[in-house]
Nucleic acid binder design. Sequence first.
DNA 1: GTCTATACGCAGATAGAC
DNA 2: GTCTATCTGCGTATAGAC
Lengths: 204, 204
Amino acid sequence: MENLARKDPAPNSVRVGQVLETATRLFTERGYEAASIRDLAAELAIRPSSLYHHFPGKQNILFTICFGMQRDFNAEVMPHLAAGRTPEEAIRGTIRQHILFSQRRKGEVLVNIRERRSLPPKLLARVNELRRQYRDAVADVIADGHRQGVFRLTQPKLAAMAILDMANGQALWFKPRDRRDLDRLADSYAQAAVVLLGGWVPVP
Amino acid sequence: MENLARKDPAPNSVRVGQVLETATRLFTERGYEAASIRDLAAELAIRPSSLYHHFPGKQNILFTICFGMQRDFNAEVMPHLAAGRTPEEAIRGTIRQHILFSQRRKGEVLVNIRERRSLPPKLLARVNELRRQYRDAVADVIADGHRQGVFRLTQPKLAAMAILDMANGQALWFKPRDRRDLDRLADSYAQAAVVLLGGWVPVP
DNA sequence: GTCTATACGCAGATAGAC
DNA sequence: GTCTATCTGCGTATAGAC
């Protein structure tokens, strides 16, 4: 039944990548809880039960998106923390790449930010572990800068959170008109982070 | 039926305020979509149908939380934008109050940040209108500072978004140990915003 | 203001054929 | 790898008595 309700003929085969791309879009548009397995199957022009050939369940689809995104993010962005010759250069390059990555893979990034908490505790912990690695690495560079006298603040983890909250926020509202527009935001935020760290004096 | 499953006797009457407080907690802990009317009724020790005496539906409960929080926020925080004698003082006082409010009413703030988008378009627009008023007022003060030569950046709305993203982020992770700890974060972030605006040079 | 009873649909997931 | 058919439970919401 319901065959007539389907506009397009069923494809011979659906790849895992197609499932993830479509799920990312649906989770972004409607939220994880509000997007159903039935919705996802309909978008892929297959039956709901067919999805269980690719994934053991809905939560696993969410995990694959969040974990894969954060793993790629860390692999791509964290090297910039060690690349600069000074802490300023390291922070500048890192924040720049952070923003470029966020915009290039915005769908996955938004799902990770907004829907991650719907994961069961064990899967959530695996994603959070990757996030913690990145945050701690940023805090370490800030602490280096403080030892070298270029950053004045005394709480590197707090400073890291402030900068990363700022860098993450743009994914929710910034829509670059073109590549130049994107570059400008990335450079501007990278500089903002350095300015912040250089001028921020601890409050007693 | 099900009377035996209820641990506590039903109260004679449930106030609207109790419903909102409990709903805020549930929506914060589980997310709006994942928290059901049945869950909410169980926490209040009443039957699900009784909730419809206080609210016409689930979406209206969410709207009441989000709109009420943002209305109170604007009434309490926005006056600080006009209070300082200089743009620096205005921004400093505003960000400070922004953070104090966010921590004092964290539950509602988190619901507004994370669950607002589950509102139907018309109700969402009414909440977003209040948010826009606040953001624009912040941007206006930044533009004033630029005209007076104390802020160097050229995109006041972008600068406002950057600062507000930073100021909003702490609600998700900062757990003050005591009042002194909270004051220190509020002062620190307020200063960070001023430092950022004072040292941020536009990228061409 | 709360209750009982219920309508009605959709949720995630599984079994087993092709 | 996809299908048909189906299970079981829970979702929001309503009618009408007390």
